[in-house]
Amino acid sequence: MNALALTGATSTGEAVQFWILAVIAVGGALGMLLMRKAVHSALCLAATMIALAVCYMAQGAVFLGVVQVVVYTGAIMMLFLFVMMLVGVTSEDSLKEQLKGQRFAAVFCGLGFGVLLIAGIANAKLDHFTGLADANAEGNVQGLARLIFTKYVWAFEVTGALLITAAIGAMVLTHREHVKAPSTQRELAAQRVKDNIQVPPMPAPGVYARHNAVDVPGLLPDGSIAEDSVMATLRERGQIRDVSQEMLQRMAELEETTADWLGRPSSARPPVAPPEQRRALQKVPTAKSPSAEEGSE
C-alpha cells in the first residue's frame, strides 16, 4: 500500500482502509459535535485524530502521521483533558440554545458549506495523482528535513519563536500576581471575628464512614445538609454528593435492629418516618447532582 501511494495509484487494500478510517473519523467528529460532556467530546476527537494519522501514513506522509499521534493525540488532547479537569470534568452544555436561530443557521450554513466544498472538489480536475515516489526517494523524513532546513528554514525559525512566545504567553495568562501580602492565620481569625458571620471553623465534611470524602456535606441536627462543609469549588460546580436521606434511612434501620435485639415493645420505638423530600439548596445548583453522582460512581 505504501508503495502504491508512492506511485499515486490506490490499491484495494488502501480503499478498504480508507473506508474504515473515514467512518471512524466522521463518526468521531460527529460524536465530538453531539456529545454533551466535554470529556466525551475530547475522547471522540482523539479517535478522529488517530484515524487521520493513519490516513497520513497511508498517503506517504509517515513523519506527519507520527507527529500527529505524538503532538495532537499525545500532547494537545492531554492538555485539553488537563484543562477540563481544572474547569470541571462533569461540566456540560445545557440543551437550551440561548441565541435565537443560531442552531438552525449553523446547520444550514454547515450543510451549504459542505455541499459547496464537495461540489467544488468534484468539479476540480484532480484525475492525475503524481505520487510521492520521487519525493520520498531517500526517505520521507530526509525529504522533509531537506526542505525544512533549506527552503523553509526561515519559517522554521519563526515557528520556534512563536512556540516560545506561546509558552510565555500561557504562563503570563495563568499566573496570578499577589497584589498584597497573603493574610496570616492571625489576620484571618481577626477578620472572621470582625465580620461576625462565621466565627467558629466551618463544619467538616464526610461525617460518615461510608462516605468520608470531601464532596459529602456534613449533616445538621435536623438531617439537612450543611452546605458550608463542602469546599467552594465543588459547590460551584454542583458536585455535592447528598447522602442525607440515605443516611437517615440507615439510621432508622439501625434503630430498628437495635430495638429488635433489645426486645423493646413497639410503643417504645421511635416512629419510622418516611423519607422526606430534601429541601432545595439555596446556594448550590442541585439539578445536576444526580448526574454528578453517576459520573463519579
Binding site: 441565541l99 443560531q102 449553523a106 450554513c109 451549504g112 458549506f113 466544498l117 467544488g120
Partner: peptide
Amino acid sequence: QNGYVRSYALSMFGGTLVLVATTL
C-alpha cells in the same frame, strides 16, 4: 451586535459561504 462570540462566528462562516459560492 449582541456580543456573543458564536454569533459573530456565524456571521464569519456565512460570509465564507457566500464567498465560496461566489467564487464557484
